[in-house]
Design a binder for these strands. Structure first.
Length: 826
RNA sequence: GCGGGAGUGGUGAAAUGGCAGACACGCAGGUCUUAGGAACCUGUGUCUUCGGACGUGCGGGUUCAAGUCCCGCCUCCCGCACCA
């Protein structure tokens, strides 16, 4: 062999060259095109959460897409027709803020970034089906947002109301409850305040029970954490509504309580200070001035102030009394901000002995405390600690002697009989506020006519296009910038043709992402958002991959939309995502990467230094996918080393393609088949790091076989190396493709198919069994894997070491677990 | 406060109740080399009187056998946060 050829043979693996070489080939072959008409393979829908186009891809994207790719490519190798689409969640504030800064249309920034990200994804070898791409800011997409809005409107699920809403002074727009995190705007971290506004809502609360109960289907398939967060977010509680007569009011006031058993312990009554009821009760009385002052004070407080739970209780006595329906007692009525206006009825009965908040208030205002449940704990009067647990009812007439649950059942029955109350449930979940006072979103397809009121835009007139930004002032000022587009705003009423104005708000961008997964299979359909045929072919999503940041917002809204569409007869399933995997975050030196913290690692730099495959491999191998990866702990150069070791094997194989593997070295063949079996199992159980470890073991075994075993010409070496290329194609597609070519095959290795595992080769020749005495290992013996319990027990007892250890004494008990272990209890 | 999750070598991590530390990183030594930031090989939990002993946050328990199951703590992370 010439020196030159020798050099080429042993040249270091050149990842940059290999990347450039294969990308155009894959563009031509399109290995991941799904849904070809003649495709007979069973379907699988693998979905990555679509990105927001804010600049180029970062390390977090790299991890998420590497993981989604392992799953998607695995199912392709396993013979499935896999739909693995991508698109862009392209409406939203960052584009608008960038547009203001650059004084140009948000479209420019958005579409530029999409192009950048798309190019990066291609280079990153994402196995996407590029034929189905769409962006939510395309009129062809958002017209269906508008269409869906109209369907919800028709069904009474989209409505307007006046309400005190979350207001972000930074973004100058309203926010959904779900977008307020610890009292701060999730986007800009401004302290959120309240503002009274008339806004559009989706009636997600109608679906609260189904959103909760259908989670039974997701048990074991979604992370337990996400299910728990959703349950808590929906926050269903069981209790009773009870009517209290109010002196001086013709109508009784209803309260909600989860503890109707403690009715006899009520010593006062509280209404939310910011409720209409409070204002009504205070109106025209001598405390009105004091009440108004109090109301002003609490309105000025932001959510963040309200969050301090140990804040002293405050309130105003309204000078009126409520009548306890069970014993006729007069309870003083207070207004306080510790009662929420928008939960239950905004009014409560206070039972200080058994509710900590009520007790805190009672102690602050010197109100009486009466114990009605004997729990065995110390008197709340003395300790200041309310006793909320179970116990025996006292001071409660007919309920005396009953336990909590019995008393609840009995009192509810009594209240229902007397027409004073009834069993009831409440939810923490509120309706979804969808209006936004910003430009870069889907226009709400409603026209406001002086004569006809609210009039929906006709479906045939969709899409209602967003006017161009030119000439509009996009700076946030509390009202939608669309209001200034007078040509656009002023229209003829669709009903009476009289002068009317368009609704100038845009939709929350979470509307866009609530149904996008339904659009991919029909992404070029111009007549409907999605076709029934496509839905029946592809949906529901078999595997969803994305960050846990969307545990509530996006996933809850998507589940809601799915149920609405199910009710509309457009789908026949009621949960959109069968399985969910939440990948962890990529950290640097223990914390999230950020420019200001100075620990930002640029994906493009990492790719340039180590190559795409090594970065993908490092992400996947670093640990379990749901754990965070600290980039300081991973070794991309270790990945490069491993990939080049694997790659070198493909140059060492000397047998021809198609050689009969059955004639190969049995021990290497066993290693190969075990690796194929174990790696498949690991991938299916999301232990991708373990799957990689199994491939590494096989690489080591093959290296050894070539250097000091059966030799490079043995068919088993080819079998092993081909298996390595196929398994590696999930994680390191460039290296795998290059290996595949060097092994004499045509591309694409991604479609080679997962080799069938021969069960006969999964049985080891001999296994090591341990012999324990009292659980301590005393000896190791080689046994056949098919040995019986009796045989292995006999071998163990006859072993010289054991005989000596036992010194003639008879074992009390012998446990044999062939072929692994014998434990002798002496 | 309520709810959830997690604590295993120097590091990232493995382990259907059955040999704790697979696979790597790092480190140390070696082979081959003009050279090594290449390749390959060996070693690497702790202690040790070299026989072994100990070892999965702490304390109990169940079991022939516990990182794994149960009970009680401690610590950390995440979510919710006056939801009556």
């Amino acid at each position: 062999m010439s020196t030159e050829a020798n050099d080429r043979e042993h040249a270091a693996y050149d990842f940059a060259h290999v990347q450039e070489k294969w990308l155009p080939v894959w563009d031509r072959i399109e290995p991941f095109k799904s849904g070809r008409p003649d495709d007979k393979r069973p379907k699988k829908y693998v979905l990555d959460m679509f990105p927001y186009p804010s600049g180029d891809l970062h390390m977090g994207h790299a991890e998420a897409y590497a993981l989604g790719d392992v799953i998607s490519r695995y199912w392709v190798q396993k013979g499935f027709n896999v739909l693995h689409p991508i698109g862009w969640d392209a409406f939203g504030l960052p584009a608008e803020n960038a547009a203001i800064k650059r004084n140009e249309d948000p479209r420019i920034w958005t579409y530029e970034n999409i192009a950048t990200q798309k190019a990066s994804m291609r280079r990153f070898a994402c196995s996407f089906d590029w034929d189905r791409v769409f962006n939510t800011c395309d009129p062809e997409y958002y017209r269906w947002n508008q269409w869906l809005f109209l369907q919800l409107y028709k069904r009474g699920l989209a409505y307007r109301k006046d309400s005190a809403v979350n207001w972000c002074p930074g973004c100058q727009t309203v926010l959904a409850n779900e977008q307020v995190v610890a009292g701060l705007c999730e986007r800009c971290d401004s302290a959120v305040t309240k503002k009274k506004l008339n806004q559009w809502y989706f009636k997600i609360t109608d679906y609260a029970d189904r959103l909760l109960d259908d989670m039974a289907q997701l048990e074991g398939k979604w992370p337990e954490k996400v299910l728990m967060m959703q349950r808590n977010w929906i926050g269903r509680s069981m209790g009773a509504n009870v009517k209290f007569a109010i002196d001086g009011l013709p109508e009784p006031v209803t309260i909600y309580t989860t503890r109707p058993d403690t009715l006899y312990g009520a010593t006062f009554f509280v209404v939310a200070a910011d409720s209409e009821l409070a204002a009504k009760l205070a109106a025209g009385t001598e405390v009105e001035k004091e009440f108004n002052e109090y109301l002003e004070k609490i309105k000025a407080a932001s959510d963040i102030d309200r969050l301090a739970t140990d804040r002293p209780k405050t309130g105003v006595f309204l000078g009126r009394y409520a009548i306890n329906p069970v014993n006729g007692e007069k309870l003083p009525i207070w207004a306080s901000d510790y009662v929420l206006a928008d939960y239950g009825t905004g009014a409560i009965m206070a039972v200080p002995a058994h509710d900590q908040r009520d007790l805190d208030f009672a102690r602050a205002m010197k109100l009486p405390v009466r114990v009605v449940v004997e729990t065995g704990e110390e008197d709340p009067n003395e300790t200041g600690i309310a006793t909320g647990g179970d116990g025996v009812l006292v001071n409660s007439e007919a309920l005396n002697g009953l336990k909590k649950e019995e008393a609840i059942t009995k009192i509810i029955a009594q209240l229902e009989k007397d027409g004073l109350g009834k069993a009831s449930r409440n939810y923490r979940l509120r309706d979804w506020l969808v209006s936004r006072q910003r430009y870069w979103g889907t226009p709400i397809p409603i026209v406001h006519c002086e004569k006809c009121g609210e009039v929906p835009v006709e479906e045939k007139d969709l899409p209602l296009q967003l006017p161009l930004a030119e000439g509009l002032d996009l700076k946030p000022k509390g009202t939608s910038p669309l209001g200034a587009a007078t040509d656009w705003v002023n229209v003829a009423c669709p009903k009476c043709s009289g002068p009317a104005k368009r609704d100038t708000d845009t939709m929350d961008t979470f509307v866009d992402s609530s149904w996008y997964f339904l659009r991919y299979p029909s992404s070029t359909n111009h007549d409907e958002p999605f076709s029934r045929k496509d839905i029946d072919t592809w949906l529901p999503v078999d595997q969803y991959v994305g960050g846990v940041t969307h545990a509530i917002l996006h996933l809850l809204y998507s589940r809601f939309f799915t149920k609405v569409l199910n009710d509309m007869g457009m789908l026949d399933f009621n949960e959109p995502f069968t399985r969910l995997l939440n990948q962890g975050m990529v950290l640097m030196d223990g914390s999230a990467m950020s420019k200001s913290r100075g620990n930002l690692v640029r994906l493009s730099d990492e790719l340039a230094h180590h190559g795409v495959d090594a970065i993908r491999l490092s992400m996947v191998f670093s640990g379990p996918p749901e754990d965070d990866v600290d980039w300081a702990d991973v070794s991309p150069s270790g990945s490069v080393k491993f990939l080049s070791r694997a790659w070198r094997l493909s140059g060492d194989v000397t047998s021809a393609p198609g050689v009969d593997f059955k004639k190969g070295d049995v021990s290497l063949r066993k290693a190969t088949h075990k690796a194929l079996h174990d790696a498949a199992f690991a991938v299916e159980s999301f232990r991708f790091n373990v799957a990689v470890a199994r491939v590494m073991e096989l690489v080591n075994a093959t290296r050894k076989a070539i250097d000091s075993g059966c030799g490079a010409a043995d068919p088993a070496v080819r079998e092993a190396t081909e298996a390595i290329a196929i398994m590696l194609s999930l994680v390191a597609p460039f290296t795998a493709e290059e290996m595949w070519e060097r092994l004499g095959h045509a591309p694409a290795v991604a479609l080679a198919g997962w080799p069938e595992v021969d069960p006969a080769l999964l049985v080891a020749d001999a296994v090591e069994a341990v012999i324990q005495i009292n659980g301590k290992i005393k000896e190791r013996i080689e046994v056949s894997p098919t040995i019986t319990d009796a045989e292995i027990e006999a071998l163990a007892l006859a072993h010289p070491t054991i005989v000596a250890e036992l010194a003639g004494s008879t074992p009390k008990k012998v446990i044999a677990r062939a072929p692994k272990l014998v434990n002798i209890v002496a």
